[in-house]
Nucleic acid binder design. Structure first.
Length: 579
RNA sequence: CGGGGUGUAGCUCAGCCUGGUAGAGCACACGGUUUGGGGCCGUGGGGUCCCCGGUUCGAAUCCGGGCACCCCGACCA
């Protein structure tokens, strides 16, 4: 491809809106241009990268035995009502009406539609198992799009769905998808770790996320160096510090003026936060919920939401607190107004003599004891794991890292089979629900993470499987006959070898061309110039290391191939290091 | 939705406080020069100063109200 005929434009300075390295480079190298919040146009250069990412995904999914399909993005709302997910997704679901005023949704994911399709095919256990996948646009009216291609309102997702007769079959399908994902991310040059995850709005049982660890990530991951345990913070278990032991003592009311936070209370009384009971108020699906947890711990809102099987959960606003008759800063479950659901974390049940609020401004109660003084409607693990907490699997300590969720695999089980009525007849002729799994990868996110993981101060460094061109040929003094002849010969040999180079034939200075080559990130650069020819050929430069050498023009193709192969090895090594 | 920030040329920004002909660098067009790391000289084109309203003889600038975009928290690939 001749650059003068290719629609690319690079920017010397990144637009001020871009802060993360990938966002800046995406805009500077001209891969995408923003249209509106969470919406981007892909340029010819950017789309080539996207297509290569797609190719990696397609090859590895095909290799795993999955079958590609294409499902409508536009879907009748009834389908979403049937699964109950029109409410689960709520405002995230884009809705629109057709000319007959019938309601549709723009698919944020495709479990319902693929269930519909699968149900048309599945009659007998002999029809199972199989896995379907597609690479298609999804729509989500996200609360806050961000980070360039990290969080979009319209994005391309590879979503796969497995259908098995039983849970053992699902385990095998899940494992096949898991292995395919590892190959996909390795080839894309994205180091990932698999972490235990919450299944969120998708529903289902086991679930793991593939995380690319980076400071610019939006998820928090807890990890134990010692045993390798890793989990999303919203899911993570941990060993709670033990309670302070003691025999129950009599309840006692004390004045604690101005001590409305755990820190103030502990300081005022000269005790550890661990000896107090923290009260947190939530509004859950419109109803007030009182949460009690030991003072040294925080509430994990995802765990709480799951415990309550709630659709909507938010900290209670000041107005709602007053309306519910709660006393912020001095509340406890002892003497709480009626009609409020009380949820307790496991940590308060076996901790004796906790200091808790007296439900009266400026006063607390000493020596409150669960069972003797109060009881919760629900007792559950609703505590948030934090850096420094004990690992749930070994004696190690958890640390936190930030990460971007690149992919997610779920064991759905029979949830959708039940709601969408996907059943089969087993060997005995009994009707049973199909056991499903689902698996997703965000394509734009892969591009963003690939750049995050593969760049330097000069620009992008594409992994060989992702690069939009096989080589970047810079031509200097193209008007000299020997240069023009060499370029023509080079282009012919590349074409014969089936390689696709980007040729910078622009009338620009050498400096601009070299800078642009570094920014655009094609792994090998060839320079055709009078100087190189004098030295016996063309200059070959490896983008990642900057090393250069002169090779005869006739050997250029082989030199490019060698570097691309070696770069594949380098990408693999980087992955091993990080995982 | 809450908190913070920003809207002036394609991009980065100055001008605003203290109202009076809208600017610079980069990019773009043309001419010349140069040709191994964003080179140099000259000429030129390009603006609803985010929008609406108010104050004023006069508003990019002051006041009010909107909107958009970015960042931090609740949602997810």
């Amino acid at each position: 491809m001749r650059m003068t005929r290719f629609v690319v434009k690079t920017l010397r300075e990144a637009p001020s809106e871009a802060e993360t390295p990938s966002h800046r480079l995406l805009l500077r190298a001209g891969l995408v241009v923003p249209l509106a919040a969470g919406l981007y146009c892909f340029t010819p250069f950017g789309w080539r990268v996207a297509r290569r990412m797609e190719a990696i995904i397609r090859e590895e999914m095909d290799r795993s035995g999955a079958l590609e399909v294409h499902l409508p993005a536009l879907q009748p709302i009834e389908l979403w009502q049937q699964s109950g997910r029109d409410r689960a997704f709520g405002p995230v679901l884009f809705r629109l009406q057709d000319r007959r005023e019938r309601w549709f949704a723009l698919g944020p994911t495709h479990e319902e539609v693929v269930s519909f399709l699968a149900a048309r095919h599945i009659q007998s256990y002999r029809d199972l198992p199989f896995t379907l996948y597609q690479i298609q646009t999804k729509f989500r009216d996200e609360i806050r799009p961000r980070g360039g291609l990290i969080r979009l309102r319209e994005f391309i997702m590879m979503d796969a769905y497995s259908f098995d007769a039983d849970w053992e079959g699902l385990d095998r399908s899940y494992e096949a998808a898991f292995q395919a994902y590892l190959r996909i991310f390795a080839r894309a040059g994205i180091p990932v770790i698999a972490v235990e995850a919450d299944s969120g709005a998708i529903g289902g049982k086991d679930s793991q996320e593939f995380m690319y660890l980076t400071e610019v990530g939006e998820d928090t991951i807890l990890r134990c160096e010692r045993c390798g345990y890793a989990a999303n913070a919203e899911k993570a278990d941990f060993r709670r510090p033990p309670p302070i032991p003691g025999e129950p003592r009599p309840l006692e009311k004390v004045a604690t003026p101005g001590a409305s936070t755990i820190a103030e209370l502990a300081a005022f009384l000269g005790i550890e936060p661990r000896a107090t009971c923290k009260a947190v108020f939530y509004e859950v699906d419109g109803r007030p919920v009182f949460v009690a947890i030991r003072g040294d711990l925080d509430v994990n809102e995802v765990k709480l939401k799951n415990t309550l099987k709630a659709k909507d959960l938010a900290p209670m606003g000041e107005e709602a607190v007053r309306r519910a008759g709660l006393v912020a800063g001095y509340a406890s479950a002892i003497g709480l107004p009626a009609g409020i659901l009380v949820v307790a974390d496991e940590s308060v049940v076996d901790a004796p003599n906790l200091v808790a609020g007296a439900n009266e401004p400026g006063f607390h109660l000493l020596n409150t004891n669960y069972g003797r003084d109060w009881r919760a409607d629900i007792v559950a693990d609703i505590a948030l794991a934090r850096a420094g907490d004990g690992c749930p699997r070994c004696e190690g300590t958890l640390e936190t890292r930030r990460g971007i969720e690149m992919g997610h695999v779920f064991k759905l089980g029979t949830v959708y089979a039940e709601s969408m009525d996907v059943r089969y007849l087993d060997e005995r002729g009994d009707q049973r629900p199909v056991v499903m799994g689902c698996y997703g990868i965000g394509l734009e996110r892969m591009i963003a993470a690939c750049i995050e993981a593969n760049h330097d101060e000069d620009g992008i460094i594409w992994p060989p499987d992702v690069t939009p061109f096989d080589a970047h040929i810079v031509v200097l003094n193209a008007d000299r006959p020997e240069v023009a002849d060499t370029l023509a010969a080079l282009e012919a040999s590349f074409a014969a070898a089936g390689l696709d180079p980007l040729v910078d034939d622009r009338d620009e200075s050498a400096g601009i061309k070299f800078k642009d080559a570094d920014l655009l990130g094609i792994p090998v650069r060839l320079t055709v110039s009078p100087r190189a020819l004098q030295q016996g050929g063309v200059e070959v430069r490896r983008r990642r290391t900057g090393e250069t050498r002169i090779v005869p023009a006739a050997e250029a193709v082989q030199a490019v191939r060698t570097i691309l192969e070696e770069e594949s090895g380098a990408v693999g090594a980087a992955r091993t290091l990080a995982s």
